[in-house]
Write a protein that binds this DNA or RNA. Structure first.
Lengths: 350, 350
DNA sequence: TCTGGGAATGAAAACGTTTTAAATTTTAAC
DNA sequence: GTTAAAATTTAAAACGTTTTCATTCCCAGA
């Protein structure tokens, strides 16, 4: 019988595993340490000597060790996942995509990942949130299109689940949020129309149910009342509404007496609809009427030099959303962070 | 001493757990079965008697049991996650969002979830895929904007990782894909322009690097050669390129002699840019020139009644992508499924 | 020389599931 | 009434971590 072979230089140590991937045990065997110590060393626990820590890190790097997320998740109860509730609406072109990119950017160097939980049209908008919580699919939640009395906010507050929303609720319930200053957007947009000599202005609202529309309305009304001119507030359409609704409205409105000669549009979609409807009625942009629109893509800038635009940086918003949510997850007792992002106005302010 | 209390009606059984949530053990205790049996019963293993299976299912439902995904994942090595690689490009408005919604729809009644792995502009487009595989973050991958010789395809094939792509490679490497029939789109679009009496047509290409652009070019050239008219192939812009590029090009081109009087546009963005550039040069849509454009939103339909459009249903594509990928994950040896989705042409075909 | 105490490391249990192999019960066959 | 086979059920190990508690080691202080 040959004598039992002794491992040389560690190569013959039994470090093979079922699934082939190196684990803490692999490192432990190589380093001649206990799994416990390796685990601690990798998380830089102070009780482990600096020398050991460095050695373990080095070995881990050399053999390409990557922690098993499922095991960590099982043991710690943390998912290292952030979820975003998606709505199938886009008043503004690229809304969803831009926000998601921003969030992803904030998560880039962290162990967190982003999962998407779409709100289907058939479901209430709190349903996806409930699902996430029940199944413990994420450590935190992000959502957009916040309503004044938002069912999701109530649900998440009750559940004590970390979240942040894009947009505010009516009564500023206690939670972090990131919002765009829609009041200022609408106020400056309206003033711009007035400054251009328009005397009957209109603001297009996608839906009064959303808080941001209220802010827009408020900004609009403030500017209008300061000057005391005539106004109009059609409430219409987003990208999913039959495209003709707003356009038909605008067309018929343009023909009637006392038609608006200035429009505040909250997105590319409504701006294009207005242009189209007015053009159907024989009205020409810039000479017969003006538009100030919010945009996040560069569609309008591209299309018409005469449309004044105010930009909303949704990628930046997403980045803030992600960053603040992570803070909140890791320190639930910290103070709520609120962020109000300023409009970028692409025309000279009077 | 009182006699040791016996559980009545199951309420006093010790079924409390650290984290409060019911587990297999909870059910096992209530049902007076072993954890093994419960596990099997819930997955409807044939060896468990029908009666037991039903009873276990009932109890699970009653106490609101939900399996711990981390534990399942750890044990089985399956993540129950599908990842999508996102590109920050959108030649077509709502591209990303629509595809994602489709995928989510396909995943809805399954245990699978969708995570997003964005390709940042700074990285190669295979990097995100590598990351997913290395960290074992998903069981399958979906990506878009496939190139003729796609680095991601090569990587994933080598790794033996299940995936499906939107778009084809050049040599139809062995893997499932879902694609839109861009040849037919371009062919019919071009023929439409010709039928309208246009004699010098142009096709706008976002980038020759992408396979779908090659198909568009091929469809365009086929139609052009059939008739033998003059043509032009400017290669330009997507949503992230400085908006002026194409527009400036079109403007200067429109002024020169022999300018195109018909444009095939692969998306809303390029269509708007053409309209804008031509309008700068004093040309009017429909009278001076025509456009046939692909769209997935309803932006163009809304804007100009005179732009002929061909629709691409990206949500349907996403649904197919999700569905086929799941099949592939659960049966890696099945034959590759290929799907070529037909264009929806919104004008009468001659 | 012994003791106490901090610094560093380790053993073992646990998270909740699946799965292998074994044990038990039931049924069928004689 | 026995026994083999089939039908059910179970015990225990394992997946790869983290964490509680214990252990070892080393050195200062007496």
């Amino acid at each position: 019988m040959t004598e039992p072979s002794r491992p040389h230089r560690g190569e013959n140590l039994d470090i093979t595993h079922k699934r082939g991937k190196p684990t803490l045990r692999t490192i432990a065997t190589i380093a001649g340490l206990a799994v416990t110590t390796v685990s601690r060393a990798l998380s830089d626990a102070p009780q482990i000597s600096l020398e050991t820590r460095q050695r373990v890190h080095r070995i881990a790097r050399e053999i390409g060790y990557l922690p098993d997320r499922a095991a960590q998740r099982l043991k710690t109860g943390r998912t290292n996942v952030v979820a975003i509730l998606l709505d199938p609406h886009e008043e503004v072109v690229g809304f969803t995509t831009s926000i998601m990119y921003g969030i992803a950017k904030a998560l880039k160097e962290t162990p967190y990942h982003l999962i998407v939980a779409p709100n289907f049209l058939s479901t209430t908008n709190a349903e996806a949130a409930e699902y996430i919580i029940r199944n413990h699919l994420a450590d935190g939640l992000i959502f957009t299109r916040t309503e004044p009395l938002d069912a999701r906010v109530r649900l998440l507050l009750e559940a004590g689940f970390p979240f942040i929303c894009h947009g505010r609720t009516e009564f500023s319930t206690p939670h972090p949020y990131v919002d765009y200053d829609n009041f200022t957007f609408a106020y400056e947009a309206t003033r711009r129309l007035i400054a251009k000599g328009r005397t009957k202005v209109a603001v297009i609202l996608p839906s009064k149910r959303l808080t941001f529309c209220q802010h827009i309305l408020h900004g609009f009304m403030t500017a209008v009342r300061e000057v005391g001119i005539a106004y109009e507030v059609p409430e219409i359409v987003d990208l999913d509404t039959p495209a003709d609704v707003l356009r038909d409205f605008i067309r018929s409105r343009a023909a009637a007496p006392g038609a608006p000669d200035g429009f505040v549009c909250p997105g590319e979609v409504s701006a294009l609809a207005v242009i189209s409807g007015m053009s159907d009625a024989g009205r020409t942009l810039a000479s017969d009427y003006d538009i100030v629109a919010k945009e996040t893509s560069r569609l309008l800038t591209q299309l018409q030099p005469k449309v004044d635009t105010i930009h909303e940086d949704l990628t930046a918003a997403g980045e803030d959303l992600g960053r603040i949510l992570l803070q909140r997850i890791n320190n639930p007792d910290a103070e709520d962070l609120h962020l109000l992002l300023p409009p970028q106005i692409n025309f000279p302010i009077g």
